[in-house]
Design a protein around this nucleic acid. Structure first.
Length: 671
DNA sequence: GGTTAGCCG
C-alpha cells in the first residue's frame, strides 16, 4: 500500500545501548551493607529489576525484623500493593497475611506475625497521624518516587524529619530514573553539618540495578507531526505490513482519541489483502467497563494481531503479555490547578523522558522489542527529565490539613522536595480558615479542624459531614458523603447506552439536586435492590461503585463513632419533620455549611455565574440541572474540558443561607 | 449546551 510506504515523516533508527549494571542478586551484599551503613539508600532500577520484591526479602533474612519491628514498602497504587505482596509471600513460601501482608484502604491483610508489609503511600501517610515516628518500622521503602505523586513527595519530606529523630530508622527510596542525586541531596545534611554524627557524604548512597527487560530498538520521526492520532494509525498499519508477529501497544491521551484511532484502523482493515493477517484494535482506558478492559488480556485470535490503544493506564499499572511494539504519541493528559479560580483542568502535555523510557520498556517484557516515538529525537532530548511534581499542580487543602495535624506549622517554609507555588499554599490556608478548620494564627481548631484532618474526605465534605448532627441529618449525610466520593461513577456510562442511563437516573431524581438524588440511589440499592448486582444492571448502576459506597459509609461512621459522634436513627415522623424542617432542606443547609465557597446562580440562558459574577459555568451533562431550572446552587467539583467550565454534583440552595452559614466569607462580597 | 488522564485516604 502506497499510503503506508511513503509516510510523510519516515522513522529513523536509534541504537539501543544496554547499560552495564549488576542484577539484583549480585547486589545483595552491597545493598545490605549500604542499608546497614547509611540512613538513606537510593535504589535506581527499572520496573522488572526485582527491587520491589527482592530488597524486602533480603532485609527480612538479614534480621531487620528480628526485634519485632516491620519493614514497610509503599506503592502508589492499590493494585501494585496487593499483587507485589502476593508474589513476595509466594517466594517466601508463606500465606499472604502471615509474614508478608498488605494494607490498603478497606483491606488489611496483615497479622501479628507480619514482617514485610506492602501498603499504599496514602495509607502510610494516614498511619503517621497515629504514629508520627513510624516506630513499628525498622525500614521504610518508598517505591516509584520518580512518579512524583503527591503522597510519595510528602512522605519523603516527613521521613527526612523522622530520620532526624530516629537514629535507628532506615529509609530506602526507589526510583526508575536517574534523578537519584536529587533525592539523595534532599535527605543529606547541609555541608558542614551532621545528623547523628554523619556528614553529608556519610548520610546516604546510590545503588543502580540492571533491569530484567529485553533491549528495545527506538525509532523517532525525522520531522514533527501535527496530528499524532493520524500518525499513530499510519504507523500501526506500517508495522502490521512489515513486521513479524507480536502485538502492538499505542499510547494516546484520552478516550476520544482512542475511539477515533480505533475507527480509523477498523476502516483500514477492510483494505488489507484477502487472507492476510488481520488486526484487532482494542481500547483501554480507566473509564471503560471492567469486562471490556479484560479483552486486552486475552490472546489474539488465529491469524490476528492485537493493537491495544491505551491511555497512560498502560504505562505503569497494567502489564499485557505479548506486546513487542510500542507506539508512543509523546503526550499525556495532566491535571493543572488554577488557584485563583479554584478550577482543575486536564491539559495535554508532553511526557517526561522518564515516561518515554517507561513506555518504551513495555515493548521489551517478553522478548526484544521496538518502540516508535511519534516525535523527533530533538523533541525527546528537549523533554523534562521527570514528571512535573503533582504537589505543584494540585489543590493543597487536604495536604495542608494533614501536615498541620502532624504538627507542621510553617507550610510556606516546609522542607518540600519541590516547593509548591506559594499561591497554592495560601489558597489552601484561606479555604481552611473560612471552613473554620484554622484559627487566625493558622493553627488547627479543636475539635473541628483536627476532626476534619482525621476524616478521609476532602475538607469541604468533611466540614459538612461534621455539621450534620446539628441539622439532624447525620445518617443522610453519611450516605451522601459516601456517594460523593464515587465522583460520578455511580451510573455506568458506556457509549450508545446513554438513553438507558438517562432513564435510570430520572427514576431517582429529585428537584433539590444531585446530592439528594445520590442519596435516593443508595437507599434504593440497599432497600429495594438488596445490594444485588442484578438490580444495579437493571438500573444502569455500577455495582462495584455501589459496593464501594457501602464500604466508605461504614468507614466514615466508624471514624465518627471514635470521635464520639453517633449515628442516630430517628424514626417515622421525626425523620420527616424534626426541627420543623423537611429532611431535604436540612441536608441542603448542611451541604451549604461545607460548600458555601462553591456557590453559583443560574442565568436565564441556563449557564451559571459564580458569586463574583466573573466566571461562566455550565452544569455538567451528568447533572440534573443540565436540563432543569434552578436559582442558587452549591457544587462539588469544577472542571474544565475543551475550554468549557463544568460544575458537577449540584444542589439547590437559598442565597440567604450563604450569609447565614459563612458570614465572614461573604461579608466583603456583599458590599 | 452534551461528559470523564490516572491514582490515593
Amino acid at each position: 500500500m502506497a499510503e503506508e510506504e511513503d509516510l510523510e515523516t519516515p522513522l529513523i533508527a536509534e541504537l539501543y545501548k544496554p547499560p552495564a549494571l549488576l542484577s539484583i542478586a549480585q547486589l545483595k551484599g552491597p545493598l545490605l551493607y549500604a542499608i546497614e551503613t547509611y540512613p538513606v539508600t537510593i535504589i535506581v532500577g527499572e520496573t522488572g529489576s526485582g527491587k520491589t520484591t527482592q530488597i524486602p526479602q533480603f532485609l527480612y533474612r538479614a534480621g531487620w525484623t528480628s526485634d519485632g519491628s516491620q519493614i514497610a514498602v509503599t506503592q502508589p497504587r492499590r493494585i501494585a500493593a496487593t499483587s507485589v505482596s502476593a508474589r513476595v509471600a509466594e517466594e517466601l513460601g508463606c500465606q499472604l497475611g502471615q509474614e508478608v501482608g498488605y494494607s490498603i484502604r478497606f483491606e488489611d491483610v496483615t497479622s501479628a506475625k507480619t514482617k514485610i508489609k506492602f501498603l499504599t503511600d496514602g495509607l502510610l501517610l494516614r498511619e503517621m497521624l497515629v504514629d508520627p515516628l513510624l516506630k513499628r518500622y525498622s525500614v521504610v521503602m518508598i517505591d516509584e518516587v520518580h512518579e512524583r505523586g503527591l503522597s510519595s513527595d510528602v512522605l519523603l519530606s516527613l521521613l527526612k524529619k523522622v530520620l532526624r529523630a530516629r537514629k535507628d530508622l532506615r529509609v530506602v527510596v526507589s526510583s526508575a530514573t536517574l534523578d537519584a542525586e536529587k533525592f539523595l541531596g534532599f535527605f543529606a545534611p547541609d555541608d558542614g553539618e551532621t545528623v547523628h554524627g554523619k556528614s553529608r557524604e556519610e548520610y546516604g548512597c546510590i545503588i543502580s540495578i540492571e533491569g530484567r527487560t529485553h533491549p528495545v530498538d527506538t525509532f523517532y520521526l525525522s520531522s514533527a507531526t501535527n496530528n499524532y492520532v493520524d500518525c499513530a494509525v499510519d504507523t500501526v498499519m506500517d508495522i502490521h505490513a512489515n513486521e513479524p508477529d507480536g502485538d502492538i501497544l499505542v499510547f494516546l491521551t484520552g478516550r476520544e482519541e482512542i475511539d477515533d484511532a480505533i475507527d480509523m484502523i477498523a476502516d483500514r482493515i477492510v483494505d488489507l489483502a484477502p487472507g492476510s493477517k488481520t488486526l484487532q484494535p482494542l481500547p483501554l482506558y480507566a473509564g471503560l467497563p471492567t469486562d471490556q478492559q479484560m479483552y486486552v488480556f486475552q490472546p489474539a485470535a488465529e491469524n490476528t494481531r492485537k493493537v491495544i490503544i491505551a491511555t497512560n493506564i498502560a504505562e505503569a499499572s497494567v502489564t499485557i503479555e505479548g506486546i513487542v511494539t510500542v507506539v508512543d504519541c509523546g503526550y499525556v493528559k495532566l491535571r493543572a490547578y488554577n488557584p485563583v479560580l479554584g478550577i482543575e483542568r486536564l491539559n495535554v502535555t508532553p511526557i517526561s523522558k522518564a515516561s518515554a523510557t517507561q513506555r518504551a520498556g513495555r515493548a521489551g517484557r517478553t522478548k526484544p522489542g521496538k518502540c516508535y516515538r511519534l516525535y523527533t529525537e530533538s523533541a525527546f532530548e528537549a523533554l523534562e527529565p521527570a514528571t512535573f511534581p503533582e504537589i505543584q499542580r494540585s489543590n493543597l487543602a487536604p495536604v495542608v490539613l494533614q501536615l498541620l495535624n502532624l504538627g507542621i506549622t510553617n507550610l510556606i517554609r516546609f522542607d518540600y522536595l519541590s516547593a509548591p507555588p506559594s499561591k497554592l499554599v495560601v489558597r489552601a490556608l484561606d479555604l481552611l480558615f473560612s471552613l473554620g478548620a484554622l484559627d487566625i494564627h493558622g493553627r488547627l481548631t479543636k475539635p473541628l479542624g483536627t476532626r476534619m484532618a482525621e476524616l478521609p474526605l476532602e475538607p469541604m465534605l468533611a466540614k459538612a459531614l461534621l455539621n450534620a448532627p446539628t441539622f439532624g441529618c447525620l445518617s443522610e449525610m453519611l450516605t451522601i458523603a459516601a456517594m460523593m466520593t464515587l465522583q460520578g461513577t455511580a451510573f455506568v456510562s458506556h457509549s450508545g447506552n446513554q438513553k438507558m442511563m438517562e432513564k435510570a437516573r430520572r427514576k431517582f431524581a429529585v428537584k433539590e439536586g444531585d446530592q439528594i438524588t445520590l442519596f435516593n440511589v443508595y437507599q434504593s440499592f440497599m432497600m429495594i435492590g438488596q445490594q444485588s448486582s442484578q438490580w444495579c444492571q437493571q438500573n444502569s448502576l455500577n455495582f462495584k461503585a455501589m459496593q464501594k459506597a457501602v464500604s466508605v459509609r461504614k468507614q466514615l461512621r466508624n471514624y465518627l463513632e471514635r470521635m464520639g459522634i453517633q449515628e442516630l436513627v430517628l424514626s417515622g415522623s421525626d425523620v420527616m419533620r424534626a426541627g420543623g424542617m423537611e429532611m431535604t432542606e436540612r441536608v441542603q443547609r448542611c451541604l451549604t455549611t461545607g460548600f458555601f465557597a462553591q456557590a453559583a446562580r443560574m442565568q436565564s440562558d441556563g449557564s451559571f455565574k459564580t458569586v463574583g459574577g466573573e466566571t461562566t459555568l455550565w452544569a455538567h451533562p451528568s447533572s440534573m440541572f443540565f436540563h432543569r431550572k434552578a436559582d442558587w446552587v452549591i457544587y462539588h467539583e469544577i472542571l474544565e474540558t475543551k475550554g468549557k467550565i463544568y460544575i458537577r454534583d449540584l444542589t439547590m440552595i437559598e442565597m440567604d443561607w450563604l450569609t447565614e452559614y459563612a458570614p465572614e466569607y461573604y461579608k466583603v462580597k456583599q458590599r
